[in-house]
Amino acid sequence: MTHIRKAVFPVAGLGTRFLPATKSVPKELLPLVDRPLIQYAVDEARAAGIEEFIFVSAPGKTALEDYFCAHAALERQLADKGKTDLIERLAPTRMPEAALTIIRQDMPRGLGHAVSLARRLVGDEPFAVLLPDDVIRAPKAALAQMVQAHARTGGHMVATMQVPRAQVSAYGILDCDEDAARGRLLRARGLVEKPRPECAPSTQAVIGRYILMPDIFDRLERQGPGAGGEIQLTDAINADVETVGVTGYAFDGERFDCGSIQGFVEATLAFALDRPELAAGLRARIDRLAGNDRFAA
């Protein structure tokens, strides 16, 4: 049994980078091959032993709730046609009764504010936070890797990946001694939000997977607005370095930023090439495009 039973999924964003597609479809339901982004995050959480799923959503995004409800009429129609394979493919979209709770964030006030809204549901136990925009392709679910490590370390834990120094200003960066790292574990002295390359304390970037102790809720309640006038989760974690402790976990896997069109397309290609029924034809098509002068770089 995992010691992390609950996970928070901040899904209140409007997905404006994907307009007009997200005018009527929540970004989290955009399909990555044949599964929406949110399904990848939920599947990763399930693989880590998560039992309770808390979505912090926005008014009007009812399609997310509908997606995880059973669709009796559809399944009955498929059963009548003998399409049991398609019924099995729907299984991951079903949530056990009372396993999914949706909270509304009326105004976008930052990731820290979104997480703080889950306080009553999380209670007094450690919990996970998964940002669906960050899709991780890994031999073992990234959150499961973190849960296993967190059982030894305790405290707050953030997922990290190494980035080129020239790109550190796009991320929160872990202030840590990389030379003293114990395997994938990095003991943090702090976190720095989007530093200039010459000032960055390391090249370990924080990405959208967290395991947090319930102390974070008290910190968020006392915390004022940070960058952009919003309640920043990074600031709250940073403030707990000396008291609760913060560890970076350099996960084994490849992260795709599916909050950007570039990252979404790259993820689609990578996951499609993992599918035996798609890979051969897709590789042939890529080779043809690469050899066509019209598409040459």
Rank of each mutant, 00 (worst) to 15 (best):
M1L: 14
I4A: 05
K6E: 01
V11C: 06
G13N: 11
L19D: 15
A21H: 11
K23L: 14
V25F: 06
P26M: 10
P26S: 12
P31F: 09
L32A: 06
V42I: 13
R46F: 06
R46N: 07
I50E: 00
V56Q: 02
S57A: 10
S57F: 00
G60T: 14
G60R: 10
Y67S: 03
F68K: 02
C69Y: 08
A70R: 11
A70C: 12
L74H: 10
L74T: 09
E75F: 08
G82L: 13
T84M: 08
T84C: 02
I87C: 10
I87H: 02
R89C: 12
R89L: 15
P92D: 08
A99W: 04
T101E: 09
T101I: 02
T101M: 01
I103T: 00
R104N: 06
R104Q: 14
R104A: 03
R109M: 13
L111C: 07
G112D: 07
R119Q: 15
V122A: 04
E125P: 00
P126Y: 04
P126K: 03
P126D: 06
V129C: 07
V129L: 03
V129E: 03
D134E: 13
R137P: 02
P139S: 15
A141N: 03
L143H: 02
A144C: 11
Q148T: 15
R152M: 11
T153G: 06
G154Y: 06
H156Y: 12
V158S: 06
V168I: 08
S169V: 05
L174T: 10
L174D: 03
D175I: 08
D177T: 08
R184P: 12
L185A: 11
A188D: 03
R189C: 09
L191F: 09
L191N: 02
P197T: 06
A200W: 03
Q204S: 12
A205H: 03
V206H: 01
G208M: 00
G208L: 05
D215G: 07
D218C: 07
R219F: 04
G224P: 07
P225L: 05
A227Y: 11
I231D: 03
I237S: 01
I237F: 02
N238D: 14
Y249A: 04
A250V: 05
A250I: 00
E254R: 09
F256G: 01
D257A: 15
S260D: 11
V265N: 00
V265K: 01
V265G: 02
A267P: 03
T268K: 10
L269Y: 10
A270Y: 04
R275E: 12
L278S: 12
A279D: 06
L282Y: 09
G291H: 10
